[in-house]
Structures are given as structure tokens and as C-alpha cells.
Nucleic acid binder design. Structure first.
Lengths: 325, 325
DNA sequence: TTGTAGGCGTTATCAT
DNA sequence: ATGATAACGCCTACAA
């Protein structure tokens, strides 16, 4: 790997001049510039980002922390983020928090150690307290996919989405409502709210399921579906969680959507390609990724004066066979 | 961010002594060590990996290049790689080649610029010529998921797997065989070989499909299935490619597996959770990820004398409803 | 056991 | 326009 010092020696100019030529910002003698560029080309010069990052400069590294890389939604987000980052000469460092707050915290250390220029975080918990460690960071950071009070965020409102799903399922004539996910999830909060707004007695009509054993959970849900007269509206925190349930319902001969109307989340390729097709809340992955990266780069380069950002993007409820009445 | 120099100033020892204490390799005065550690703790010292990487040291960065992060197989691989890397104090840089040879080549530059200690590559094309740019790298690199002649690789034999699928589908009584994928894919080569070994006249009985428009392709396949008497054996290069076909077949009322027996690849969660369940070739993702990272770290740390590595892991053909006779 | 000195490759500052 | 020089934070000699 040839260095600027080496190019300087070979072309008979000083090292800073080489630097100036290669960065193209200051003015240099055209003839010297030509020689330097020629030499750089010939030896395949590559700037050493490590050295560049050392004395206070940019590393052009962007850290990305997600709970689970293999979840299709996050995988898609990462693809978009990587794509937009690459267009802007940024390289991404990936960290998997594994839905574990402690692991998430450890990422702070690594981000500091590698002097990433910024961080995009899909937090395990969408509340500011759980993120207080990140306040230590001396570089800009922002949350995506969720909205956190007092923290720059790019998101769709999961609560709103949950509400819309409630409205939709109620309209399909569902009498009972099952939610698959955790209680603190904003989707649940919104789902509940939405049902209450419809005058549905949530304490008697809404049930929540969350079992690590997906097959067992699916069986339980099927049983609960079969026990009740009337249509059941089922809403899962993501498409992946919905799959075993669909599977179990089909095997048990439960008719979809007549007996059980289903809605997932994230609108991954799975939902489009399943039979039956699954209704799902679609997050604007590409827009969210692009927006997050651009906003981040703005913060990295720009004046600190950037106003706090709380960008809500619109989710779309894509209605497919699994909940079409 | 406090530095070793600063700690040295505060504790009244020299900077190298601080370095020695924090790295714990050389012997130091216990009392001085105590003071240094206390000070480091108090100020939350974090080593600057950038500086450490500069003078020939390790950056502890591991580059990973895949064709498509959002493909569930690669997403799973990345999760395993990240997990094993993290256990070994490595951080990963992610690059998406987008199935594009030119983009893949560009990664070489970035890996050099960031002085990654090594590279794990899932190549777009599994041949040495397409990878000649990577020979420039001064750090160890190896291929995973595919086998490349003359290059360190960790893989399952796609050709063998293709052969086994051919055998399996022939046994189920299929008379015609459809392959969904590209011609140069080793899976196709193996599939073809396997059929020939069964005495099947591949020129008349084997058909290959590869259309960017997945819906159109699926419709065409359904048409071709319906046109023929006898069972069709269908093998797709991955589960994702199989989905639209399953969908179209079900909608057209084609019976699975009686009329069309299907086998996918990668054994992603989709195949388990679809109805019908999909047969699929399972790659040992966890083992492959672990093995690749460990072998890589061995190369990074160890003597160059490491022998070339061509590690073949065993794929397993998981037979489910979609091809159970 | 410890400190001094030098260097990694770059950018920034200051003269010239 | 350009060259010296210093600095970034760390590590590896080498000397004491």
C-alpha cells in the first residue's frame, strides 16, 4: 500500500502537497498535481482511513445497531442503510443487540472505540431511560423504526398503526381480538386504544399471547379460536410471528379469513408470497433508511444547530386475503 | 474520551506504563497499576482502536461481503458471523455486493482503506477468475457458502446437494424436472448430473427457468406444469425463489406434492412455516459461520504457515410435505 | 520495572 | 503555492 509520503518521495514534492492534490481542496501547481495523480494512479494509492480518522478527522464509519439482523425487516433496513451510506462514502459497522439491553449498552463502547462518526439505532426498548448510556456518545445518534421521546427519531407510529389495524379488524366483523406480542409494545397500546374507541370491551374481548415456544403458542391460539363463536381478529407484531399461527390454523382447518382474520407487520416478502396472502402493515423501509442516513450525515457534517428531528413517516395497511371479508 | 497520555499525566507515570497496565502483558509495579486502573475506570477509558490500528497493529475489524443482506440465508450467516466475531473482540464491516461483480470489486478498495484484519466473502461468482482483484489484499480472506478452486473456502457442496435433490425427486416418481436459477450455478450442474446418473434424458426432461419478473416466471411454470402429464419435480436455488411458484401453483389448484414436488434451498424459517411445508436443503449456518470466523482469526493471528483450507460441511436435505410422496 | 524516543499516515497550522 | 512541523493515540523498541 503506497502512502502519501512515498508518493511525495517519488514525485519530488512534499507530503502535504500530495495530500492537497489528492484531496483537491487547496490550490496546487498543475504540473505537480499531474505528476502526483499519475503516480497515485500507477501505484494504486488508497487513502488510509484509519490514519485519517486519527487526528480528529472523520472515520466515515456509521454504526448500526439492530436487535436481530436476521429479522427480515431489519435485514431490509440494513440493506437500505448500507446502500445509501455507500452512495455517501460511508461504511457501516454492524452490531446485533439480540433484543438484549446489556448487549445494546456494550455497543456504546465499541462505537467509541472505533470512533464511528454516527450511530443509527433500532432500540430494544423505545424509551429514553433505557437509552441513557447512549447519551455519553460524543457523536450524533438517532433512533429508527421506533419513536423515542426526546431523541432524534425516524419512525412510523406503531401505536397509530395498531389503532388502524384495530379499526380494520373490527370492520371485518371480528368479535374477539388476539394480539401476539409483548404488553409494552406500542402496537399493543394502539391496538387496545383502537378497540376501545370502537366501543369494544377490551377486558373481555382482547387477549394477548406471548410464548417463546412458537409451536406451542400457535396451538394454544388455535384452541382459543375454536373455543369461541364468532370471528377472531388476530394481530401479530410482525409477519414472522404470524407464520406459525397461520400454519396451525390451516392444519386445524380453520377458515381464513372467515373464522380468523389475520394482520401482520412489516409487509415482508413473506406476506406477499404466502398462501393465503397476509395482510400486513407496511413500513416505508427505503424511505426510512434513506432519510435516516441523510439526516445523520447532515448532523455529522453540518452545524450542531440542527434542530431535533422527530420524523414520522406513514405506514400503510396492506389488506390481503388473510383479512379481506 | 480520556487517553493513555492523559492517564499518565494524572497518575504520574509514563504513557507506555499506562499502556502496559491496560494491556496487562508486561510486568508493572502493583501500586502504579492500581492507580492507573483506578483512574482509567473513573474516567471511563476506552482504547482508541483507530490509533491502535495505525502502526501496523490489528484493527480488529473483519470485513464481510455478501450479495444480498436481505436474503434470509445471508442474514442468518451474518448473524452467526457477528456473534462469533463479537465473542472474539472483532467488529464487522458489512458490504453488500448486490450480485454485482463491479460492486464486489469495489469492496477490495474499502477493505484496504479501513485496514480490516481479514475478509469473509460470499462471492457473486464461484470461480477464481472473478475474484482475482481480491488477490491484491495483503490480509487473509476466505470464501464462505461457496467453494472456489484455489481459494480458502468453507462451504457445502452445492453440486452434491443438487445431485441429492435430483435423486430424491426422481425417487418420488417425477418425470419432468424444472430448475429455477442460473445455468452456471453449481446446483444446476449437480442437479443435471444427478438426473443423468438416473438415466434421465436431461435434454428432453429437464427445463430451466430464470426470469427477473418473478410473478411472470411463476405463471409460466404453472402453465408448463399443467401442459405435461406426470409429476414434475421442481428445484429452486433458494426458498425465496420457490415462494411465488408455490403461490401460483396453489392458486391454480395444482396439487402439491402429487402433481408438483418441490424442493428449495437454505432451509430458512419460511420453509418450515409455510403451508405446505417446503422441502429444502439445509446448510449448517451456525457451524459455517463459527468455522469461518475461527479459521479467519487463526490466519490473522497465527503463522502464515496455515495450510490452505477447503472445508466442506455437510448439507442436509430436509424432506417435508412439498415433496413427500 | 520503567521512561525516552520514534513511528504509523494523515490533516492542520504556520511560515515562506 | 508549498514545505516544515506538529499533532492525533497507541505500541514497540531500546536504554536505564
Amino acid at each position: 500500500m503506497i502512502t502519501t509520503t512515498e508518493i511525495a518521495r517519488l514525485t519530488g514534492v512534499s507530503q502535504p502537497t500530495v495530500s492537497r492534490v489528492l484531496n483537491g481542496n487547496a490550490s496546487v501547481n498543475p504540473e505537480a498535481a499531474r505528476k502526483v495523480l499519475e503516480c497515485a494512479r500507477q501505484y494504486g494509492y488508497q487513502p488510509n482511513m484509519i490514519a485519517r480518522g486519527l487526528n480528529g478527522g472523520r472515520t466515515n464509519l456509521l454504526a448500526v445497531v439492530v436487535p436481530d439482523i436476521s429479522n427480515p425487516f431489519f435485514a431490509d433496513m440494513i440493506r437500505e442503510i448500507e446502500h445509501e451510506a455507500e452512495k455517501n462514502q460511508y461504511t457501516i459497522l454492524i452490531f446485533n443487540s439480540d433484543y438484549n439491553i446489556e448487549k445494546e449498552k456494550k455497543c456504546v463502547r465499541l462505537i467509541q472505540q472505533y470512533h464511528a462518526d454516527g450511530l443509527l439505532l433500532a432500540p430494544v426498548r423505545a424509551n429514553a431511560k433505557a437509552l441513557k448510556d447512549f447519551q455519553k456518545l460524543e457523536v450524533p445518534w438517532m433512533v429508527f423504526s421506533n419513536c423515542v421521546e426526546g431523541v432524534d427519531s425516524v419512525f412510523v407510529s406503531h401505536r397509530d398503526a395498531g389503532k388502524r389495524v384495530a379499526l380494520h379488524l373490527a370492520k371485518t366483523g371480528a368479535e374477539y381480538f388476539f394480539f401476539i406480542g409483548e404488553e409494552h409494545d406500542p402496537k399493543y397500546v394502539g391496538f387496545r386504544e383502537g378497540l376501545m374507541e370502537q366501543g369494544i370491551l377490551v377486558d373481555q374481548k382482547l387477549f394477548r399471547f406471548w410464548d417463546r415456544e412458537k409451536e406451542r403458542q400457535a396451538k394454544e391460539i388455535v384452541r382459543e379460536v375454536q373455543e369461541r363463536n364468532g370471528r377472531i381478529g388476530i394481530f401479530a407484531i410482525n409477519d414472522v410471528e404470524l407464520l406459525p399461527v397461520v400454519n396451525a390454523l390451516l392444519l386445524a382447518g380453520v377458515r381464513i379469513p372467515e373464522k380468523a382474520a389475520l394482520v401482520g407487520f412489516d409487509n415482508t416478502f413473506i406476506s406477499r408470497r404466502m398462501t393465503p396472502n397476509l395482510s400486513s402493515v407496511s413500513q416505508p423501509v427505503e424511505e426510512m433508511g434513506k432519510y435516516a442516513v441523510r439526516e445523520m450525515i447532515g448532523r455529522i457534517c453540518g452545524k450542531k444547530s440542527k434542530p431535533p428531528c422527530h420524523k414520522e413517516l406513514l405506514a400503510e395497511l396492506v389488506i390481503r386475503d388473510s383479512s379481506k371479508l
